[in-house]
Design a protein around this nucleic acid. Structure first.
Lengths: 152, 152
DNA sequence: TTATCTGCAAAATTTTTGCATCGAT
DNA sequence: ATCGATGCAAAAATTTTGCAGATAA
C-alpha cells in the first residue's frame, strides 16, 4: 500500500467520521508515513516543522491520537516510564511483532501469521473476541555496534 | 513461593547488590506482594500508608524501580498515555501473558509454556538472546458486567 | 562512623485543555 | 455561515531529583 493510498484511506475515514480533512492533518499524516518508522512526538513535530514551522505540539498530539483511533498507528512504549512513547505506523490489522535489544534499543519487526492465529485461538478459548495483539521480545542482539554483543 | 520466601529472596538480592535492607523497603515490598495484583503507584502508596502514614511518594517510586531491576516486578501500561503505569508482581521468569478487555479493563493472566518456547526459538533465529517477553491480547470479554458483552 | 535511605518539596517531563482565531464544508 | 481545527500558553498529571535529617551496617 503506497503512501498516497494510505493518505487517501485516512482522508476517507475522516470524512466518514464527520471530521474535517485539513492541510495540517494531511501534512502531519503524510510526514508520519513518509518517515515510516517508530517516532516519538518530538521527532515527528521536528520533521513536520521543517515543512511548516508554525505547527503546534497540541496538533501533533491530537493528530496522532486520531491515527491511533482510526487504526493507522499504534501507541507503544518499550520499557519503563523513562522510555518515550512512540508511534508505530500500521495499516489495517497488519500485525507485526517486535524484538527489542535491551542494550542498543535496536528493534526488529517481524510477522508470524501462525502465531497470530494461535493468539486468536487462545483468546477465543477464554471467551474473548480478539481485536489487537502485541508481542514484544526483549533480549540482547548481535549487531556489530551493540554494546553487549556476544563475542564470536 | 510464599510471601515470606519472596521477601527473603528480595532482602538477599538487596544485600548482594550492596544495598540496605530497611523497614521502609520491607514494608513496601511486603504490601506489594500481599496485594498480589496489578497496582499503580497511588494504590500501592495508599495501602502502604495504612500501615505507616508518613511514607512518601518518592520512596514508593524508588522501591518499585528496585523491584523491577531485581526482577520481582514488571512495569507495564495497557493502552495509551492516559492509562496508568501498573506494576505486576512476578518471580523469577515466571512468565505470564495478558488478555485485556477493551471495554471493562478486566485482565486475565495466563501461562503458555509452548508459546514461551516458540518465542525463544524466534528470538534465537534472529540472533537474539531472549531475556523477557510480553504478550498482550486485547479484545472484548464475556463477563456479566462487561458493557460490551456479546448478547447470548 | 559512614554510606545509604527517606521524606519533603521543588523541578522536570509528558500530555491535555481552554480559548480566541482560522479554515473547511 | 457554521462548526470543527489550530496554535498558543496554561494547566494537569506523572515521575525524578536535591537536600537535610534519619537509619542500617
Amino acid at each position: 500500500m503506497s503512501i498516497q493510498d494510505t493518505l487517501e484511506a485516512f482522508q476517507q475515514r475522516l470524512v466518514e467520521r464527520g471530521l474535517k480533512s485539513t492541510r495540517q492533518r494531511g501534512l502531519i499524516v503524510e510526514t508520519f508515513f513518509e518517515l515510516d518508522r517508530h517516532v516519538n512526538v518530538d521527532e515527528l513535530l521536528l520533521e513536520v516543522r521543517k515543512r511548516r514551522a508554525s505547527t503546534g505540539y497540541a496538533t501533533v498530539y491530537r493528530t496522532l491520537k486520531l491515527l491511533v483511533d482510526l487504526g493507522f498507528a499504534n501507541e507503544r512504549r518499550f520499557g519503563g516510564p523513562e522510555t518515550p512513547t512512540i508511534y508505530d505506523p500500521s495499516f489495517e490489522r497488519d500485525e507485526h511483532f517486535h524484538l527489542i535489544c535491551l542494550e542498543c534499543q535496536h528493534i526488529i519487526e517481524f510477522r508470524d501469521v501462525p502465531l497470530e492465529k494461535r493468539h486468536e485461538a487462545i483468546a477465543r478459548e477464554q471467551g474473548f473476541t480478539l481485536q489487537q495483539q502485541t508481542l514484544d521480545l526483549y533480549g540482547h542482539c548481535t549487531r556489530e555496534n551493540c554494546p553487549r554483543r556476544p563475542q564470536a
